[in-house]
């Protein structure tokens, strides 16, 4: 079985995001980039399948500027076999355009299983997996917390509102990975050293037919300093109101 992992490089979760002077993108100065945490679950799951003897090869594919090769090298260090960078000058906020460049390449590759994160933490669009499903005409199951592969039979547990589902499908298919699927490993230093020496295969591509674009970026209203709602049980009603109306988490 051949696995392709699509991963994205994103700014670190703790990064201090600053809007660039053009007002339409963020300034990359001083930002550390990491592999999208959900993509890491996909990488880890692929490696586990390979370690379990269920997969023969893993290719990680990513897109974006040159710096993305660092993320691909980390994937190599973790244990994927090959990496491919579809080099673009920037990122597109239009996921359909992104899915387009991925699909165009994936159509030329051999695969049985495509793993990716359920979403990326930068634009949080959560679209690529299901879009690729359409473009490649293969099934896709999203937000997966458990994956079993037996030959061409694929059984997954996926998260749904208020519970979970067990779903069966067959290869080739796309699985988008959710937290809880596994605990991604720390790349071995030996792996890091080997990855350092490897060349990242790069192909220049460009986005086509972008429909969605950013007009303007802005900062949200400053997150207020911790708010002491009140003292004792009397404050409970107000807390619940704030959680519902202000924080919108209930």
């Amino acid at each position: 079985m051949k696995i392709i992992v699509c991963l994205k490089q994103v700014p670190d979760t703790e990064a201090n995001i600053k809007i660039d002077t053009n007002g339409k993108s963020i300034s990359e100065a001083g930002i550390k980039f990491i592999i999208n945490p959900y993509s890491e679950y996909a990488i880890e799951e692929a490696i586990r399948l390979k370690e379990a003897g269920k997969a023969e090869s893993i290719t990680a594919v990513s897109w974006g500027p040159e710096r993305v090769s660092e993320a691909l090298k980390t994937a190599l260090a973790m244990g994927v076999d090959d990496v491919l960078l579809l080099k673009t000058d920037s990122y597109s906020v239009d996921s359909f355009a992104t899915a387009g460049i991925l699909a165009a390449k994936l159509k030329t590759m051999e695969y049985d299983l495509i793993l990716m994160g359920k979403e990326t933490i930068d634009d949080g669009s959560m679209q690529i997996g299901p879009m690729l499903s359409e473009l490649l005409n293969i099934p896709c199951v999203t937000v997966v917390t458990k994956l079993d592969v037996d030959g061409e039979h694929v059984t997954v547990k996926r998260e749904v509102e208020g519970g979970s589902e067990i779903i069966e499908t067959s290869t080739p298919c796309i699985i988008t990975c959710q937290k809880g699927l596994n605990e991604p490993r720390y790349p071995s230093i030996r792996g890091v050293m080997m990855a350092k020496k490897k060349q990242v295969t790069t192909e220049q591509v460009s986005f086509e037919g972008e429909n969605l674009s950013i007009n303007k970026l802005s900062y949200p209203a400053a997150r207020s300093e911790g708010k002491v709602v009140g003292e004792g049980a009397d404050a409970v009603a107000e807390l619940v109101r704030l959680l519902r109306e202000e924080a919108k988490v209930l």
Partner: peptide, 15 residues
């Protein structure tokens, strides 16, 4: 649409 877990908000246009 919020970006970067709500650290930045984008005004988008869809054409």
């Amino acid at each position: 649409h919020p970006l970067y877990a709500g650290k930045v908000f984008a005004k988008l246009s869809l054409e």
